[in-house]
Amino acid sequence: MATNEYWANRIFSEYVKLRQSTDKVFVSYGDLAEMIGRKGEHRLLGASLDMVRAICERAKLPDVATVVVDQQSLRSGEIKPSPKALEKHGGWPGLRAEQGRVLAFDWNAVAVDKVIACKRQ
């Protein structure tokens, strides 16, 4: 059975690939679950996204988890991530600043394998 660490690595890897190949920044929990092969299991991604935050922090990368939002807020333009992401960044101003970092970051410069290998050490 795959662990949360495995799914966190998949989430990080798939998000970086997405940013390297498209202009898409925000992704819904449902779309993310489908991207990593867990279609319909979007409600089970919380612990893995916490680990993604840790991966990003250790690698000094923008927090990818801030751009994973629920489908309804994405459609309405509110772009609300999880309450945990909001809390981690100290409220809306800090959260929006971090989302801006994700948006502006050059993801083409990220070598996923090196980031994940560095995390394991």
Rank of each mutant, 00 (worst) to 15 (best):
G37I: 08
A117W: 13
G77S: 09
D63K: 01
S48N: 13
V27F: 12
A2I: 13
G30R: 15
E78M: 12
M1G: 14
A47C: 11
W107L: 05
A111S: 11
I79E: 13
K119C: 08
V64N: 10
V115Y: 00
V115Q: 07
V68R: 07
V115G: 09
H89R: 02
Q20S: 06
H89P: 02
E5P: 07
V25C: 03
G37N: 12
G100R: 03
M51I: 13
L32E: 07
S48H: 11
S13Q: 06
M51E: 15
Q99H: 03
L103A: 03
I79H: 15
M1L: 11
A8P: 11
R10F: 08
K17W: 04
A59I: 15
L45F: 04
V25I: 10
R75I: 02
S48G: 11
V115C: 02
L18C: 05
Y15K: 01
V115S: 06
F12M: 12
D50E: 14
S21I: 04
Q121T: 12
L45P: 05
A33H: 08
W107G: 05
A85V: 11
R120C: 06
A54G: 10
A111V: 11
Y6C: 06
A97F: 05
E87K: 12
P81L: 01
S48Q: 13
A85L: 05
H89K: 06
A59G: 02
A117L: 07
G100H: 03
R96G: 03
W107T: 09
R38D: 04
S28D: 08
R101S: 00
D63E: 04
Y29K: 14
D70F: 15
I55A: 01
K39P: 04
I79P: 14
R38Q: 13
Q121W: 01
H89E: 05
R101Y: 00
V68L: 13
E41Y: 04
Q99T: 08
K17S: 06
F26K: 06
I36M: 01
R120P: 04
L32N: 14
V67R: 15
A109F: 02
T66Y: 00
A65L: 03
Y6W: 12
G46L: 07
V64K: 12
D23S: 13
L32T: 12
G77W: 04
P62D: 01
L61H: 09
S21N: 10
A8M: 09
R101I: 01
A47Q: 14
Q72E: 14
S82Q: 05
S21H: 06
F26Y: 15
S48R: 11
E78C: 06
Y29R: 14
M1W: 14
V64Y: 12
L32V: 12
S73D: 06
K39I: 07
Q72S: 10
A85E: 11
Q20T: 07
S28C: 10
G90Q: 07
I116P: 05
K84F: 08
